[in-house]
Simulated scan of single mutants.
Amino acid sequence: MPQRTSRPPGQRPAEGAAQGLSEPLDRGLARMLRQAVLTHATSERRRKHPAVLHVGAPGMRELVFPVLPEEAVDDALGADVVAAMRHRTGLDRPLVWLTRTGDLTLQDVDARWLRSARQAYAEAGLPLVFVVANRHGWFDPRSGLRREWRRLRPRS
């Protein structure tokens, strides 16, 4: 059973939060976001690893882009990367999620890729679902909405 919190006490939503996720989440979207966390938790065994940008449908069809810290990607190039990945998935409404180590708090890498994803989806005229995931949960940096699990297991 997930530990549900909409936003940690005292944490204000990031700018543009009105465009982020809000309660109640669509059941299908909630399942897909849970799958993104589960896939990351079961497939990534290293304690420290670079962030990875994913575009698509978790556990079904997704494209990945490793975010290497030594490679500087500006917002315009990042938007091109997201747009190309979105187009290549062939899906009508692919999700964008960033998997990384660390706590579920806003980090520089999250903000950079959020800006790029917002630009790419705005240019395409599509609504954006963007979350950051680690091995224990996900959060939307725009609204602060999150889900965390103590021990996530596959459903039977």
Results as ranks from 00 to 15, higher is better:
Leu95Glu: 02
Ala124Ser: 10
Leu53Gly: 05
Pro154Lys: 14
Met85Ile: 01
Ala122Trp: 03
Glu123Leu: 04
Trp149Thr: 08
Val131Ile: 10
Arg93Gly: 09
Trp138His: 06
Leu152Lys: 06
Asn134Gly: 12
Ala14Val: 08
Leu114Gly: 01
Phe139Gln: 09
Pro141Trp: 12
Ala76Glu: 02
Arg151Gly: 14
Arg61Leu: 12
Ala117Ile: 03
Asp92Tyr: 07
Gly137Ser: 12
Pro9His: 11
Ala72Gln: 03
Leu29Asp: 15
Phe65Tyr: 07
Ala120His: 02
Arg88Gln: 14
Pro8Leu: 15
Leu53Cys: 04
Asp74Tyr: 04
Met60Gln: 06
Leu126Asn: 07
Pro50Trp: 00
Leu106Cys: 05
Ala17Ser: 10
Leu29Tyr: 15
Arg135Ala: 10
Thr101Ala: 09
Gly102Lys: 07
Asp140Thr: 09
Leu25Met: 14
Ala36Gly: 13
Glu62Ile: 03
Ala124Arg: 14
Asp103Lys: 07
Ala51Ser: 01
His49Arg: 03
Ala124Ile: 10
Arg112Ser: 03
Asp75Phe: 01
Pro24Asp: 14
Gln119Phe: 04
Gly137Asn: 10
Ala84Leu: 04
Glu62Arg: 02
Pro8Gly: 07
Leu126Trp: 02
Glu15Val: 03
Ala72Leu: 04
Ala41Pro: 06
Gly90Tyr: 15
His136Leu: 13
Pro2Gln: 11
Ala17Glu: 11
Arg147Ala: 13
Glu44Tyr: 12
Leu98Asn: 08
Gly28Cys: 08
Gln107Tyr: 06
Val96His: 03
Ser6Gln: 12
Ser6Lys: 12
Arg153His: 10
Leu53Tyr: 02
Arg118His: 01
Pro24Cys: 13
Arg45Met: 10
Gly10Ser: 11
Ala124Leu: 11
Ala111Leu: 08
Glu123Tyr: 02
Ala120Ser: 02
Arg4Glu: 13
Val82Gln: 00
Asn134Val: 09
Ala122Ile: 00
Pro8Trp: 15
Phe139Met: 11
Gly125Met: 05
Ala18Gly: 01
Ala41Lys: 15
Val132Lys: 09
Pro94Thr: 04
Val132Thr: 15
Asp108Cys: 01
Pro2Leu: 12
Pro127Ala: 13
Trp149Ile: 08
Ala18Met: 05
Val129Gln: 06
Thr42Ser: 14
Arg7Pro: 08
Gln11Lys: 08
Arg34Tyr: 14
Glu23Phe: 11
Lys48Ala: 02
Ser22Phe: 11
Gln11Pro: 05
Pro66Phe: 03
Val82Lys: 00
His40Leu: 11
Asp103Ile: 06
Gly59Glu: 03
Arg142Tyr: 07
Arg27Gln: 14
Ala41Cys: 12
Arg150Met: 09
Arg27Phe: 13
Trp138Thr: 10
Leu98Lys: 04
Arg142Cys: 10
Ala51Val: 00
Arg88Trp: 15
Arg147Gly: 09
Ala14Cys: 09
Glu23Lys: 09
Phe65Asp: 01
Gly78Asp: 01
Leu128Asn: 03
Arg118Val: 02
Asn134Phe: 06
Pro69Ile: 05
Gly28Asn: 09
Val73Pro: 01
Thr105Glu: 15
Ala122Val: 03
Val37Phe: 11
Ala111His: 05
Ser116Trp: 00
Thr39Arg: 00
